[in-house]
């Protein structure tokens, strides 16, 4: 707890929350723009549309947003060259946990804001009926897990490399991969494809009638396996990060 408090003191006045708010507001603007002037048919399927669009936007934006977050949380030690000093005050494991927890709280806050915005958007547009809260909750949990897996990867890279360009370029490449994977398959085993695997609503577009229909996804065994990969990545990145950070010299 003390180590976590220390993390928050370190980032005081670094305006990380403000940065994340600014980046999330771009995502909100995009969602607002994408759902403007809904037709009657779209109003009927609005709540499902939200659950379909959200993971796709996350696949584009989140890898970069999270790389910025992880870099901001890790670079203070690089700039001050304070790793060795900190390790004399707290164990390396506790320091790593504090960074993970601090970033996770940011992620949680961003995801909560994301889903509150989706609900506000739906009621604002006047989507028919009420949202399926179980589906929204499941989608929320899966998105948080995807963000956490990416955060752990980015944190590991940001802690290991003094040059923050490397983790940020990885984040950018991840965003690029996320976009491209969208066109290829509805699931992916890669960490950046987790948002696609975790989408619980799919879209069916009829080229003849040009009608779009949204439906709840029926996960096949391969898709379930891709979904499980999110948990595997979390464990893998957490374990690797903890070991590497503990062994890191200076």
């Amino acid at each position: 707890m003390i180590t976590l408090q220390m993390e928050y003191r370190k980032i005081k006045r670094k305006k990380i929350g403000l940065t994340m708010c600014a980046m999330m507001s771009i995502q909100f603007a995009w969602l607002l723009w994408a759902s403007k002037n809904p037709s009657e048919k779209e109003l009927l399927q609005g709540w499902l549309y939200n659950l379909h669009t959200q993971p796709l936007l996350c696949a584009i934006m989140m890898p970069t947003v999270i790389s910025v977050l992880a870099s901001r949380l890790a670079d203070i030690e690089h700039k001050g060259n304070t790793y060795k000093q900190l390790k004399t005050l707290r164990t390396a494991g506790a320091l790593y946990h504090a960074k993970v927890l601090c970033g996770f709280l940011f992620i949680l806050a961003m995801t909560v804001a994301d889903y509150l915005f989706l609900l506000a958007l739906g009621y604002g547009h006047g989507y028919v009926g009420n949202p399926d809260l179980k589906a929204y909750l499941l989608s929320f949990v899966l998105q948080t897990a995807c963000c956490l897996s990416l955060y752990l990867l980015q944190l590991d890279l940001s802690l290991l490399f003094f040059n923050q360009m490397i983790p940020l370029v990885v984040g950018l490449c991840g965003s690029m991969l996320g976009v491209i994977l969208m066109y290829l398959k509805t699931y992916s085993f890669l960490p950046w494809g987790g948002f696609l695997s975790s989408a619980i609503v799919m879209m069916d577009w009829n080229p003849a009638t040009r009608i779009v229909t949204y439906y709840y996804r029926d996960f096949s065994s391969v898709e379930l396996f891709a979904l499980c990969m999110i948990a595997v990545w979390i464990v893998l990145f957490y374990t690797a990060g903890r070991i590497l950070f503990t062994r890191k010299e200076g």
Binding site: K14, V65, V68, S71, R72, Q164, L168
Partner: peptide
């Protein structure tokens, strides 16, 4: 910050 201008660019 190194990262914030990149976020702004995105």
């Amino acid at each position: 910050s190194f990262a914030i201008p990149i976020g702004i660019a995105m």
